[in-house]
Design a protein around this nucleic acid. Sequence first.
DNA 1: TATTGTTATACTCTATAACTATA
DNA 2: TATAGTTATAGAGTATAACAATA
Lengths: 158, 158
Amino acid sequence: MAQSRALDDGTAHDGRRDLAAMIVPLGRALMAAESPVLRAHGLSMWAYSVLLALGEEPVRTQNALAQAIGADKTRIIGVLDGLQERGLIERRPDPGDRRVRLLSLTAEGRRLRDSAQAGIRERETRLLARLPAADRTAFLRALRTLSSLPEDEIIDPE
Amino acid sequence: MAQSRALDDGTAHDGRRDLAAMIVPLGRALMAAESPVLRAHGLSMWAYSVLLALGEEPVRTQNALAQAIGADKTRIIGVLDGLQERGLIERRPDPGDRRVRLLSLTAEGRRLRDSAQAGIRERETRLLARLPAADRTAFLRALRTLSSLPEDEIIDPE
DNA sequence: TATTGTTATACTCTATAACTATA
DNA sequence: TATAGTTATAGAGTATAACAATA
């Protein structure tokens, strides 16, 4: 039968592996790289995500917060409990609609988030230093473009 | 207290989010994009990974195959059973050491893999078309560089 | 009746440990 | 005894469904 691939090394087409085959393990390794920093700050991955999301913009409902970080609303309840007990976030009922919880960072939460993020960024910088400067900026620009696309357009690009 | 971030939108430093915060959801979306193609071919994500890994180079032990695709050796046994039953892979004892199983793709396995990969690549191409050509090539080059690093060097870059 | 948050349950995925067969 | 593969068990993580409070 016809052999449609010059080299049978999994790098058909333009000589690369599938995007997901490169990106997913890279993401896993990046999470593993973050983990000691987060552990030193007493934060789980989800807790750190929450701190980041609350810094981005004040969030009005827990459901909205959960969706913003790609989690189920039931998933983050324990996380919010822990952060609140440690005084890193505030969670109080909205006077206007006492069903919803207004979520915000405390000053200490902001400090901890910044400290953890600084450690993470430092490692990222060293990793990115392996790329030529031009590739690095293009990589980051492309990454920002792709990661800001709505998920639908990634799943089914036209 | 001092506000160390000009804008509190989670984009400190060089105006971007954490690498993992961009890459991990992107990887998830890419897997979601692959999933209908794989389902149409009757393949799970792990089964597809196995077909790709066997295409890259013949593998001598199941343990080595599992590690190559980032799985536990116990995790892929059911996957191999299914692929073998469908005649997509061959799995026979090594005559030299009958403990080990020699793993290889059949012609039909190769065909199925190529067909699935073609569908996946087509979607990827449309997605990457959203990037300027220069960014696209730099992105792919950088991605190949980073994803080919040993995991240790990503976790703890010097 | 609908919605927010919560709790309880079930399900999936993954890792660990125990077993067999070969060496 | 050590290793490759397999099976069985247990654990973590996640999603689904039921519940209480408020609107």
